[in-house]
């Protein structure tokens, strides 16, 4: 699977709430950030978790967010960041 995003792209995390195992933290869903690294293609943890070891590989990225966007009452400095590893199927272009 070819990586859809490149470094610098603005993306938004889907606001989805599947009931099973996934590796997208609740706190970042619906938030917008920027791709800072493409980590490679990896097996989907949502398949691996249920015993499917040979499912398709999916692109995975590190996405950077502003802390002030993440937490409404963030008490740190305005330039503080959080960086999260996210799989491509959890991301949409920020403009969409």
């Amino acid at each position: 699977m070819t990586a859809r995003y490149t470094i610098g792209d603005n993306v938004r995390v889907r606001q989805a709430y599947p009931p099973g195992h996934c590796r997208t933290p609740y706190y970042c869903r619906g938030k917008s950030g920027v791709i800072v690294r493409y980590c490679g293609n990896f097996r989907n943890p949502e398949d691996l978790a249920y015993g499917t070891y040979n499912g398709p590989e999916v692109p995975m990225y590190r996405v950077q967010f502003n802390q002030t966007d993440m937490w409404p009452d963030y008490s740190g400095a305005p330039q503080d960041k959080v960086e999260i590893e996210l799989y491509e199927h959890w991301l949409v272009p920020a403009s969409s």
């Binding site: 933290p25 740190g76 400095a77 330039q79 503080d80 960041k81």
Partner: peptide, 27 residues
């Protein structure tokens, strides 16, 4: 993060940017 750092005795100036890395996946 700044409050947590401070509980470990690490106080950083607000001029320093803090980057928190959440190890969510394969790295």
């Amino acid at each position: 993060p700044r409050k947590v750092l401070s509980e470990f005795g690490t106080d950083l100036s607000n001029d320093v940017q803090i980057k928190v890395h959440d190890s969510t996946a394969d790295m």
